[in-house]
Structure formats: structure tokens, C-alpha cells
Design a protein around this nucleic acid. Structure first.
Lengths: 246, 246
DNA sequence: CGAGAGATTGATGGTACTCAAGGACGGTGG
DNA sequence: CCACCGTCCTTGAGTACCATCAATCTCTCG
């Protein structure tokens, strides 16, 4: 585990983003103590493995990752993508078991916390305990939206919905600008998130390109007609509420 | 809102079930104070409505309900079913917004809590705050499994998986015995949970019946060959861990 | 230059959807 | 008591969507 020079929580660059809430000085001091160090993970490496009990939980500081889950025969579902500010391993921290795996898509920088100290967060800083629940509830909300998509929408609508969803989340942490969503993932990853095959996703993207709505290429997805895309997928832009960062 | 004679939390019949954790006397006393009363809801009635901010959150004490979410054009996804012991409106309590609706399937008895007092749970009883996160993390875990199913399995596998999942949850709260899962929901509800049409579900159930695996009828689903069913859907029985009840 | 991974396109088949009609209830009212 | 209704389930026929198999193409990288 290559450790790196650590950033002080109070000066965490993520914290400066308008999506995140401020910390009180007391909370910042506590986080500082709670934080165990930083960790760099290479693209494709596993951050947390299903069934295995890592002694750490993480906050993603830089880069992209994805949560996924497999059936015994190999079929794989991407449950969600993780972006800076997202907490990894909350299930592990609370329930002492992981039922999914987290893998890095890019080179990833993580903030490392000791799992068995999670309880002290609740005991010593109730506001941070509340924030933990917030984070869990938000993840549930994202999954609800995703499940609605996979269960009810067709491939075109799903592709649009996920693209817009990721664009908005990426933009909130400074990972997207103008109308380009970077694609550190392959079409296979994206297809596994949508619940379609890569082949069918490719055809779906072709249709979207032919219609002049969006284009996947040159390292990103180009949103050419956001208004039309939102209408097609009945996408609703998320609220502007600030969320906690742990 | 018809109020009813309330049960004291320390004597809550749910608490006696082996699936749930005990409460310390202090915790029980606090819950007692936190609890605002009980509420009976008729089948088909809405318990919590998307976008609207109810001043209450609930724990389901008796009966079945379901969480669902709709697209503007009417397509509806059942996100999950709720059984006794499940917390309803956690997103509302924490994030002040609901992005799904909860509807009663049977006559339902609810434990009512004041939403704006949720913060005091964290402040005064950290262990209960921890339990709140636990509940949220568990819901996320259920959704992960469900999403894997809807995204990757075919209709037969999905029907089996959801049936076994519900059977195990129902059994844990004494709502299923022998090999019969009661069905307080219609096939349309079930189909909307699986992400297939009711018509196709009906055909799928026919195949399962013809193969002698399970049968939907006479008020319940009869699991005829649990071993074969588990193998077909690569279902894994959940852990025996006790979970908190709030 | 060759290997390998990812993306694209074509051909074909299967799974699931749509439209439609009929059957089996349970509840209501004449 | 039974006709009538609505809801839910079932079955059939035709179609659309998506999966599978397979071949080609691009690109990167050793």
C-alpha cells in the first residue's frame, strides 16, 4: 500500500467545491484524526472486493471507479460509477460485509479510514454520523433512479439517462465542462451498467449519433442537444442541494 | 389520521423476532419518546408521496407495502417491497426530499415518528444513529441485488430470484411458513418489480408451473423445489445477521 | 510488424412487448 | 338469487427489441 503525502482535511480541495457542505472546525479536526492516510490505486485494480473484509473504508479523492456485482456464471452488472467525494465501503463499515466489488477506472487517489473506528464517528460527532446516513440515502436514491431506468426504459432512453446523470455528477465535481462527459470507461462498462450488450449499445449510440443528439468519441461523450435528450429520456435535473463530504 | 392505542416500544412484538437486535433500556426509553403514535392505512392508500414533504416518517409494524417510482408517461417500476420492521421515508428524514412513493398493499399499521426530531436521534443516541445508517445500507444492498437481477437475468430467473428473496424476508418476520409465500400483491405489481409486462410474467409463471418448480395461486406462491429454484437463479441465501429495528 | 483489446457492422434467432379476446373470479344491485 | 360489472389472469397472434455469432476495422502498445 503506497502511502502518499496527505492533504489536511481542512484544506481538502474537494471541500472547496460548491456541491459540498462546509465542515465546522471541530469536525475538521476530528476528520483529521480519523483519516489514516492516502492511497493511490492504478486503473483496473480492485479497491474493495466482495466477500472480503478490508480493514479500511475510503473516500474517493481523485479519479473514477465503479461498483459492480456478478452472477456466478460471469454476467456482470455495473451498479454505479463513483466520482470524487463518494464514499466507498459504507456497507462494509456498517454491516461488516461487502456484497459488491469496487474497481478503479482511472488512476485513483483515496482517503483511507480505519473501519473499526467508524463507530467513534457516531459517538463523538453526531453531525458526521448524520452525514454518513445522508451519504447512504443518496446512494439509495441514485440506485432507485437507475433501477427505474433499467427496468422500464429501452436502450436509447437508458443510454441518454445514464449519460445525463453522469454528466451532471461529473460537472458538480469539475470533471466535465462545456458539453463533454469524459469516458474513462469502455462501452462494455457502460453497456453493463445499462443492462444491454456492448454490441447493442454500439448500435444504440449510432442511432443517437445519426440523429445528431450525442456522440461517443475522442475520449468523451459530446452532448449535442441537451434539451432534446432530456425530453427523450424524461430526465429531471437533480436538485442543487449541497451534500456532505466525509 | 386515525390514531390507535399505542404499543410500548419495549414491548413491541416485532422486537421479539430473532431477526432483530435488542434495544438497551435507555434506547427503548428514547424510542418511546421519539414515537408519536400509530397509524392504520388501508390497502391501496399512499403512505408517502414523491415530491411531497410529509412531516412524518414511519416504521412498518404490520402488513405489506411497496416503494415505487414512475416515468412521466406512466411506466412504473416497483423498487422494493416493504415488510414489518422496514423504515419508510428515510430519504425524507435525512435529505428532506422523497423521490419515490410508498403505497400500502394490505391494511398496514405504522409507527409514526416526527421527521424534524430525527436529528435528536443522532445527538442523544449515537447507537440509534448508527442503526439508521445500517438500515439505509441494507436497503442499498437489497437494491444492488435487485438491479443485478433486472439488468442481467431473464424473466424466469428474475421471477425466481424475487420470489426467493421475498420468501426469505417474509419468513424472517413470520409472514411465510412451510414453502408458501403469501401474495398480497397482484401479478401486475410483481411484473413491475421485475421489469417485465404482466402478460409476459403470466407466461413465465406458466413455464415454472409446467416444470414443477413453483406455482402462483390460492393466495400464495408455492415453492415446490427450492433447491432447483436456487440453482436456476443462482440465488444465495442471505446471512443470518440480526439487524436493527427502529 | 503482430498481438490484443475495443468498437462497428451484418445476419439470424430468441426473448419479451403489443394488441386483442376470452375466462375466472368477487362484489354490487336489481 | 342471479345478472352485471370490474379487476385480474390467461392465451393467441404478430411484431419489435435486443442477444448471439461472427467478421472486419481501428487503435494502442510491446
Amino acid at each position: 500500500m503506497p502511502q502518499r503525502e496527505r492533504v489536511r482535511c481542512a484544506e481538502c480541495p474537494l471541500r472547496a467545491l460548491p456541491t459540498f457542505r462546509e465542515l465546522s472546525p471541530a469536525e475538521a479536526a476530528f476528520m483529521e484524526e480519523f483519516k489514516r492516510g492516502e492511497l493511490i490505486v492504478d486503473p483496473g485494480a480492485t479497491i474493495l472486493l466482495e466477500e472480503s473484509a478490508s480493514p479500511h473504508v475510503f473516500t474517493l479523492l481523485e479519479g473514477w471507479a465503479y461498483r459492480h456485482k456478478q452472477i456466478a456464471d460471469g454476467r456482470l452488472q455495473v451498479l454505479n460509477f463513483a466520482l470524487p467525494g463518494d464514499l466507498l465501503g459504507l456497507q462494509l463499515a456498517i454491516m461488516n460485509e461487502m456484497q459488491h466489488t469496487v474497481t478503479a477506472l482511472t488512476r485513483v487517489r483515496l482517503c483511507v479510514f480505519q473501519r473499526d473506528k467508524v463507530w467513534s464517528v457516531y459517538r463523538d460527532h453526531p453531525s458526521l454520523g448524520f452525514a454518513m446516513t445522508w451519504v447512504a440515502a443518496r446512494e439509495e436514491q441514485l440506485l432507485d433512479g437507475h433501477l427505474l431506468s433499467v427496468g422500464q426504459r429501452n436502450a436509447i432512453e437508458r443510454a441518454i439517462y445514464l449519460t445525463l446523470h453522469l454528466y451532471d455528477r461529473a460537472k458538480a465535481v469539475g470533471y466535465a465542462d462545456r458539453d463533454i462527459l469524459p469516458t474513462p470507461f469502455s462501452q462494455t462498462h457502460f453497456a453493463n451498467a445499462l443492462g444491454v450488450t456492448p454490441v447493442h449499445l454500439s448500435r444504440t449510440l449510432r442511432k443517437l449519433r445519426d440523429r445528431g443528439l450525442m456522440r461517443w468519441g475522442e475520449g468523451g461523450i459530446y452532448l449535442q442537444d441537451r434539451v432534446a435528450l432530456e425530453a427523450l429520456a424524461s430526465y429531471e435535473r437533480p436538485g442543487e442541494d449541497r451534500r456532505p463530504l466525509i
